[in-house]
Amino acid sequence: MIQKMGDGLGERVGVFVCECGMNISDTVDVEAVREFAETLPGVVHASVNKYTCSEPGQQQIKETIREKNLDRIVVAACTPRMHEPTFRACAEEAGLNPYLVEMANIREHCSWVHTKEKAAATEKAKDLVRMAVARGRYLEPQTEMESPVIRRALVVGGGVAGIQASLDLADSGIDVVLVEKQSTLGGVMAQLDKTFPTMDCPT
């Protein structure tokens, strides 16, 4: 069985197709992709931009979110590993939860790797947008939470490593509980006469 989450399926999706200068539009017919996007269920806006990540590109997204009251956005551009944070921040500024952003990677995974197959690349880009819209409609707002960290550390083992870590922390103002199973600190190093490479006494 599959898990369903929430019920707020996206009904007002905005799709932003990027030309990336000519990086995408040289291979992919972006206008055809835009037209196709408009036909997808839940999509209320689809537009093309030369550089979606640029300041004017982001501005346009923000304005469209507000004007058309978008509840999800899909950016068909480069890899999310590059600009997902950019578009999440952009959505957030326009009042949309950053996790309601989905990207379709039509550059690294499409225009750049099928340069000689323009028609097939355009079909693939359409699929990638369709997939992003389908997934995008199911996205849920998420919140990043915080939890407090106690400013005290436990160090287990009082050999040279445990000693160094304890002193570094304690000198930085952190309280340290150091636990050693023997009756004395020191570990193996305390047993050594001189140590390489400097031949000095360890203790």
Binding site: S147, P148, V149, I150, L154, V156, G158, I163, S166, L167, L169, A170, G173, I174, D175, V176, V177, L178, V179, E180, K181, Q182, S183, T184, L185, G186, A190, T203
Partner: peptide, 27 residues
């Protein structure tokens, strides 16, 4: 070694081991 014993912020327990733990990062 002696610095550890002297350090006001270090609480040293010898002959001691960890018996159990609960909680997660931060606490």
């Amino acid at each position: 070694m002696a610095d550890v014993a002297r350090h006001p912020r270090i609480e040293l327990h010898t002959l001691a081991t960890v018996e159990a733990a609960s909680g997660s990062v931060g606490n």
